[in-house]
Design a protein around this nucleic acid. Structure first.
Lengths: 198, 198
DNA sequence: TCTTATATGATACATAGTATATCATAAACA
DNA sequence: TGTTTATGATATACTATGTATCATATAAGA
């Protein structure tokens, strides 16, 4: 099977498109391979000439998405994280069906988290010397940031993008970046206002 | 079908026990109903006399777990959140297979999050007057806390409970409670150490 | 453009898992 | 102890996955 053959490229493109589109109507787990091939107008048996199953097709969609995210043009400098957040949520808004389908499948939520975690962890480690005394390992901070980010994207999608991208970028920067950073430094001791009072 | 009949109670108890135990060996999605009935030594057809399917069985396990969590004896007062965290992670360590099975299924991770979110949200709203100027809605703070908590539990389980419960309780209090609280108050302006420098 | 190679569509088929119906038996209830 | 009913075992229908085969359509290369 020559992966550069125009027929092959066409088939794979149509199958990916079909799965993404179908997640608008049905949950990922409920979509059958027959649904995908019917919607793509591709022979049922042809599916298995290209992919091992639904998850394998999703994996290709997923990998291409990760590549896109990694190539987002964040320029270093002032307001770095708000800009990063902006590009991230912009990408989500432009690929809603795709993100819904990824976050719909536990399998790929995990993959998404584990993959992104590595990037985040490297990022934090490059700046760890700024923290006087870290109160927990970097790996936990990375896990926390990624879980929260996925949670925030999920909330935004579930609420039909009620907030504009700018607002989400700001929340991302405050809640996820600053929140984690503040908690990480054990020197920041914060007395919660209601502690000892209820 | 009388739900108080000893035979009924026995069957349901054995089926729940079997599903929880099986998640130690296999992923939730890969477990078949035949696996469950075989392991429980219950007739296959009997399963459907009690549950609509695997998810329905899991829902009962899930509901009972939530009830247990809600009845954890947190005493109000000083170090409230560390204590809350301690009881939470203690419960996780005592019911590892159960938590693994819940977090293994996207369906129930969602249910877990949505259910817990409501509790957390009410909790925050009771103290919102302490925040001078909230920089985002309470609902987002609740979503954030719950997503992070699930992420933290997931990390702990994936790393075979490397940290003692005390340490997890401390991380919970700092990262999730204090981190969120700090970020929520727009008056807290934190200049990140590397901003504008990379 | 013509020939050759190969990807696709259609069909049939094997397999696995879900879900229901039936009836004899065993266990619980009162 | 007699009656009720839940269970076990078996047969069966159904749905979805995955494979094999062959004629046809389409792309690649000379």
């Amino acid at each position: 099977m020559n992966p550069d053959d125009r027929r092959v490229l066409r088939t794979r493109r149509l199958l990916k498109k079909a799965l993404i589109e179908l997640t608008d109507d049905k949950e990922y787990e409920e979509i059958t391979i027959r649904d995908i091939t019917d919607h793509a107008d591709i022979g049922y048996a042809t599916f298995f000439r290209h992919y091992d199953g639904k998850d394998d097709l999703m994996l290709e969609i997923f990998t291409e998405t990760i590549d896109e995210i990694e190539s987002l043009p964040v320029s270093h400098g002032d307001r770095y994280f708000e800009q990063e957040g902006y590009l991230l949520f912009e990408h989500v808004s432009e690929n809603q069906a795709l993100y819904r389908s990824i976050l719909d499948s536990q399998n790929f939520t995990r993959k998404f988290r584990d993959h992104t975690k590595k990037m985040v962890q490297l990022h934090i480690e490059g700046h760890i010397e700024h923290v006087a005394s870290p109160s927990f390992p970097v790996e936990i901070a990375a896990q926390h940031m990624v879980s929260s980010l996925i949670g925030l994207i999920d909330w935004w999608l579930a609420n039909d993008l009620v907030f504009p991208i700018e607002r989400m970028a700001m929340i991302y920067e405050r809640l996820i970046i600053q929140g984690t950073w503040h908690a990480m430094d054990a020197e920041n001791s914060l007395k919660l206002p209601w502690e000892g009072t209820d």
